[in-house]
């Protein structure tokens, strides 16, 4: 998806893990998954560079759809759709 398409998504849950280091963002995402329904979309905000590799890899293993990410204002914004 393009950055514009990602920005247009209305997320069901926002996980703001900015300021935490690995493995903080991954754990926050894993815990927050219980809060959204199947098909729901999660937006993740992270300032940890490892997140850009870790979250898509984890999502693929768990069967969730990784929608994409963009970097802006010094942090990453990532989107996942729950299986």
């Amino acid at each position: 998806m393009t950055t514009e398409e990602l920005k247009a998504i209305q997320a069901d849950k926002v996980v703001d893990s900015r300021g935490t280091a690995c493995p903080g963002p991954l754990l926050a995402v894993k815990q927050a998954m219980a809060d959204i329904p199947s098909g729901g979309v999660m937006q993740i905000l992270s300032s940890d560079a490892g997140t850009k590799r870790d979250i898509p890899r984890w999502a693929a293993k768990k069967g969730h759809e990784y929608l994409g990410d963009f970097e802006e204002a010094g942090f990453f914004t990532l989107y996942l759709k729950k299986a």
């Binding site: 690995c22 493995p23 991954l26 754990l27 894993k30 984890w58 293993k61």
Partner: peptide, 10 residues
């Protein structure tokens, strides 16, 4: 602890 966190995520 970091490794256990990764294991928990998986």
């Amino acid at each position: 602890g970091v490794i256990l966190s990764g294991a928990a995520a998986e």
